[in-house]
Design a protein around this nucleic acid. Structure first.
Lengths: 148, 148, 148
DNA sequence: GGCGTTCTAGAATATTCGTAG
DNA sequence: GCTACGAATATTCTAGAACGC
């Protein structure tokens, strides 16, 4: 019945992560999380589309922090890296290695190959939160465990 | 009497803004606010000192958002841009126009030529806020204009 | 269900002590305590990762005392040395006599082969301590021996 | 009212310094 | 001496709140 608004943030995110031309945002190896390269994302997706595939005006903002705010509003949580996080290829050229900001985010309703789950991605508004009042009620920064 | 800890955030900020070698952070024309060029600041100050004057290890963070959090913790507020913010001359080559992130922040206790005011910059902790309980009590984002 | 945040101090400590490439930090013979060679740890783990396995940015600090503070915050206690603590053979010549700082620390929730206990390692904050108000309440510095 | 964007604050852990015991 | 802890600041992730459409 109720499909997902293709202009909503989760729908845009889904299209981006499944778009091979966009290298800045992709699935993690397990397909359960999102990897976003901040610098590359700013060039490719934000700031006016001089990027590769011409993501013309996909988002109104030019600030990466707005993307993070949206992720949190839709219930995504940051996954602590620290472990694998694929090795830096660093072939040779380019040189300026630059402090990488590779963000890893996860939502139980955003999994590779499962577009059917997108309908469960709700914006965490006051009213929506009231509806889910009986939920486990995670605190703002999960004190310890976070992978559910 | 009570001087300012030179390792505190306000002291570091003061030294940076008064350091001509650092072009990423400077006074606005009136001397009452701070201008920070995000991209340049990340290169010059954060991320390991391959920048100009070697601000080796001034901050432990490499994230610009941490600087913003500190500014807010010390009572700085963003100044709505669109007004002054001198045009960047754009030396010539390159041409990558790039979506500029030029941040304009203000605090009544951070004014050009007035290092004596720095002692009034207090970190807004629970305890410090309790001490100033009698203040007007501004909400999180001042409803309209807040330029005092 | 609830796993441990891999970015927390106990998780990092666990990975380090179980990482053979890191020789500076290892289990004591009984597997109930931690042995840390201060000088080697500073080279291998702190101070920029020119060390062996490239523990790039595992900690933001470069001070060994900060590691000790973290150990104490998570309930570790120093084990009186002078007893076991195998002598380091001293690889060869030189005879850098070495007033070696070999630190021996213990926690009942940090045992070799028992990652399941890590969830009991709680940061000793004011709030956490309040929650455990009804606990046996061990004093800060165990009166005498506590080797269980 | 919903949603997106922006600025600010809350809350938890991390780092540092001083000092009590 | 020297271990352990309190307290203050720093860093990080998430949420609150205001505004415009």
């Amino acid at each position: 019945p109720s499909s997902v608004n293709p202009e909503s943030f989760p729908a845009k995110l889904w299209r981006l992560v499944n778009s091979p031309p966009f290298q800045s945002i992709r699935w993690d190896p397990s397909g359960q999380g999102l990897l976003i390269d901040e610098q590359q994302f700013m060039r490719e997706v934000l700031s006016g589309g001089d990027g590769a595939a011409g993501a013309a005006e996909l988002f109104k903002t030019k600030k990466f922090t707005s993307i993070i705010r949206q992720l949190n509003l839709y219930g995504f949580h940051k996954v602590a890296s620290g472990l694998v996080v694929e090795q830096r290829p660093g072939p040779g050229a380019g040189g300026g290695c630059s402090a990488w900001a590779l963000h890893h985010y996860h939502s139980p309703h955003f999994l590779r190959g499962r577009p059917d789950l997108l309908v469960y991605l709700k914006r965490l508004t006051a009213s929506n939160k009231a509806k889910e009042a009986a939920s486990p009620g995670l605190s703002s920064r999960q004190p310890r465990s976070y992978r559910q």
